[in-house]
Every structure is written in structure tokens, then in C-alpha cells.
Design a protein around this nucleic acid. Structure first.
Lengths: 138, 138
DNA sequence: TATTGTTATACTCTATAACTATA
DNA sequence: TATAGTTATAGAGTATAACAATA
């Protein structure tokens, strides 16, 4: 009597899918930046962010956000300007290099999603995305 | 002219969904075990695993696998038996406690997926799962 | 008093390298 | 020579606590 193989559960599938995706972004191909930096840049892009705002948006501590901002500032992806309204704070802004990086990143992500859409069909991919968004927002 | 808000890309959605799921498994509610330990236990459940087999299955180093096995052994979720065929090796097996833990874990995961299915409908959830499995297997 | 951002410290996860016992 | 498992070490990510400057 052979042991039945259990189908993978949602956590296994989500983890594997995210792993697949992350494998497409080796740090050496992306100027040494890693997914945490991508997330910081995407929030900075929305403009006028202080370190403490980034932390709140990304669900991390201000210390963690500050560390990533320092990393990105050292490498020229963001710059920091004094906040005109609060001398304690600094505004984090994208540099041209940061904006170009984000453009390249988003084009690459769009290409990956296009590949998935071609593979499973437009209608099923739309359903997938809608269900995923619903789960992500719970 | 207001800046248009970009829709979230696949990596954001997958990350958020996995984050939602992981938030349902705080270590203090799960005997101090964390998602990496869950993955180890799920492979050990298939039986007859050596540390090096676990590493290969899970895409981690044998050192990492050995560390998790030591953690789970200390806490009584797995035990290690000498391998009758190779005196260098040990077979890792689930204890009763480990098996009970996995049962509880899988019931909880099934309940979460049932909730998602009720929310979006059986048909859409099936499509979601099929597309996700296809992406995970790429 | 509260908040912005820093420094110091620690824990988890993962990785590489070097080692031992055995194959 | 190669393999199973261990020990030592390091880097990335994240967390708490304590602090200086400013609100």
C-alpha cells in the first residue's frame, strides 16, 4: 500500500512562487541591491518620505529603514534633503540613478508577468491576480 | 494633475499574501517553532530522511538542515536513529509530538484556505491555485 | 513630554570553509 | 577520494534599548 502524496498547501505554493520570482533578481545583476532595497525605493518614489514614514509604510522599525536609506544613499540611489518644516527630519528622494533603476526593475517585473500570462491565458491570470490581491489585503 | 497610483506588481502581492499567512503563525502559538521548522517537519514526515536529504529537498545547505534538526530534536519533535546501512549517517524521524504538531498545522492551513475559498468562490479559488502551482513550478 | 534619527546590541536565517569519521 | 554530519565564522535582515537634537 503506497503512501498517498499530499497536495502542496497554500504556504508551500506561495513560498515557491516568491522564490522563483526572487531568483530572477540576483543582487549582482541589480547593482548590488536586494529586494528590501527595492521596496524602499518603491515607497521613496511616492515622494517626500522621511525615514519614519518609510518604516510605517513598510512595517519595519525606523532603525531598519534608516539602515536601508543609508545603504541606498551611499550608492547614489537616493539623496536626503533637510526637511523645511522640521529640523530634526530629512526628506528622502530618488536620484536620477534611483529613478532609472526603478524603471528597469518595473519593466523586468512586467516582462515576467507577461510570461506568466502567456503561459496560463489572459483570463485565468486575471482571476489569479484578483484572488491574490484579495488575499493580500485581508 | 494628480500622480497616478501604480497597481501593485506580482512581487508585492505575493509578498503581502505570504506575510498575511505567516502572521497567522506566531511562534508563541506554535510551540516556539517557526516556518523553517514547519518545512523541515513536512519533509521528515515523508520518512527515512537524513540531514543531507532534507537539505537537498529544501534547497538549503546541510549545515542549515542540521541546525534545524538539532533544534527540533532538542524540543522533542523529531528523533534521530542510527542509519543501519551507513554508520556515518542518522535517520531523522517524527516523534508522536512532531506528528501531532503537523496535524494541527495542516488543519490550521486547511481552515485558512477554506476561508479564502468562501471569500472568492470555489471556482475562482481553484483557478488561483492552479495558476499559482504553475508559477511555483517554473 | 513626544518625536526624528542615530548608535549599540542581539537574534534568526542562511552561507562558506574546514574538520572528523566513515564509505 | 568522496560523503555524512559537525564546528566556526560571517553577512543580511530585523528587533529592542538608549541616546542627542529638536518639536
Amino acid at each position: 500500500m503506497s503512501k498517498s502524496v499530499k497536495p502542496p498547501h497554500a504556504a508551500q505554493l506561495l513560498g515557491a512562487a516568491l522564490g522563483e520570482l526572487r531568483a530572477s533578481f540576483p543582487a549582482e545583476d541589480w547593482d548590488g541591491l536586494r529586494p528590501s532595497h527595492f521596496r524602499i525605493l518603491e515607497v521613496v518614489e511616492r515622494g517626500g518620505m522621511r525615514a519614519v514614514d518609510l518604516a510605517a509604510e513598510l512595517g519595519m522599525t525606523k532603525q531598519g529603514a534608516g539602515q536601508h536609506v543609508a545603504y541606498l544613499t551611499d550608492r547614489g540611489f537616493v539623496r536626503q534633503q533637510p526637511d523645511p518644516d522640521d529640523r530634526r527630519a530629512r526628506r528622502v528622494e530618488l536620484t536620477d540613478r534611483g529613478a532609472e533603476f526603478l524603471g528597469r526593475l518595473h519593466r523586468r517585473l512586467a516582462a515576467i508577468e507577461s510570461g506568466w500570462t502567456r503561459r496560463v491565458g489572459r483570463e485565468d491570470y486575471a482571476t489569479f491576480r484578483r484572488v491574490l490581491a484579495s488575499i493580500a489585503a485581508s
